[in-house]
């Protein structure tokens, strides 16, 4: 295809991505470097019949003039990045000096919003991803061994947790796990503790969020692995059987190596997707026990006071984290491309 034809075919989609993805990224980075102007204060002396009082008030005109002169706000450099709400370098250094043990240090870190969110996001990402791959694999092997008529039904119901809106899915689970819901009742009965409540316990909240994560993403792994299982070379499987491989050995030495590229694919996609965990925190109203970077951004942007520069800074930090997670994918794509060429 000629360059010119390519250009015209590609122009609409390129414009959409430039204006609404690339430009906002630039704008987010800019916003994270600026802070809103502080109001200009003036001292006014009010003299009445009972003497004079000093009053501080906002000089509206001067403030407006300042805002008009520099609409981006006042340049703050990396100040916002290092403040208490983000990387909190000063607080971390103080905690490092003052804590006697490593445990106390992490306890201190847990009071800083960014590190608190990071702790949950990373725990969530790195427990949910391997567990959902394992569950998806076993479902795929299981479904692959039943009769054809049953498979359609199984696939239909397996797709539901993944297809359903994350917020809706997490609400449906939350209402069941809630202390007054059916599963909550069951847990209370099993633990023999009628006061046990999800809302009151941090570990329980983390576990339920992780269970939601596995429940909602395992179907994706299942579908991908199931498709992969259809392409397993029957000859290899048969020769393994002739050589006396047990069922487990067949899975371990034939199926898993065959599915390995797919397992890497699912792992990479899911690492990126789980890192943005957000809706379940809203659905479970888990703010008090678990927050994530995406949730911090949402929280900063919502409400009456939209804290744009705080949100923008967290956004930039999130993008950097995603970039780190993305590197293996990029390397892989690069190798594929080199291999093809």
């Amino acid at each position: 295809m000629k360059h010119k034809t390519f250009f015209w075919f590609f122009l609409p989609t390129a414009m959409a991505m430039l204006i609404f993805i690339a430009a906002p990224i630039v704008s987010v980075v800019m916003q994270s470097l600026f802070l809103p102007h502080e109001a200009v204060l003036i001292q006014v002396e009010n003299c009445g019949p009972f003497g004079c009082t000093q009053q501080t008030s906002i000089d509206q005109e001067a403030t407006q003039a300042l805002r008009d002169a520099a609409p981006m706000g006042r340049f703050a450099g990396l100040e916002v990045y290092f403040d208490r709400g983000h990387l909190a370098t000063a607080e971390v250094a103080a905690a490092w000096r003052n804590s006697e043990s490593l445990g106390a240090f992490f306890g201190e870190l847990n009071n800083l919003p960014f590190y608190r969110a990071m702790a949950f996001t990373l725990t969530y990402t790195f427990t949910v991803t391997p567990l959902l791959i394992a569950l998806g694999f076993f479902i795929a092997v299981g479904v692959n061994s039943v009769t054809r008529q049953l498979r359609g039904l199984l696939i239909f119901f397996s797709l539901l947790p993944m297809i359903v809106t994350p917020l809706v899915g997490s609400l449906i689970l939350f209402w069941m796990i809630d202390a007054r819901g059916v599963l909550g009742n069951l847990i209370q009965y099993l633990a023999a503790d009628p006061d046990l409540s999800l809302k009151a316990s941090t570990p329980l909240m983390w576990i339920s969020l992780i269970i939601y994560g596995i429940w909602s993403s395992a179907p994706f792994a299942f579908v991908v692995f199931y498709a992969g299982l259809q392409t397993v070379p029957q000859d290899t499987l048969e020769s393994a059987q002739i050589d006396g491989a047990t069922r487990w050995q067949q899975i371990r030495y034939v199926l898993i190596p065959h599915l390995m590229p797919l397992i890497t694919f699912v792992a990479l996609i899911q690492l990126m997707d789980n890192f943005r965990v957000f809706e379940p925190i809203i659905g479970f109203s888990a703010q008090a026990h678990a927050t994530s970077l995406s949730w911090i951004i949402f929280n900063d942007l919502g409400g009456e006071t939209r804290q744009l520069s705080a949100a923008a800074t967290t956004s930039v930090l999130t993008v950097l984290c995603v970039a780190i997670l993305l590197t293996p994918v990029l390397v892989r794509t690069w190798r594929d491309f080199k291999g093809k060429a």
Partner: peptide, 18 residues
């Protein structure tokens, strides 16, 4: 496109608002 796909949409929102 792959990099754009990996960005969580919420990170772009503060760029849209102003």
């Amino acid at each position: 496109a792959l990099i754009f796909r990996a960005l969580p949409p919420i990170t772009l929102v503060s760029g849209y608002l102003p």
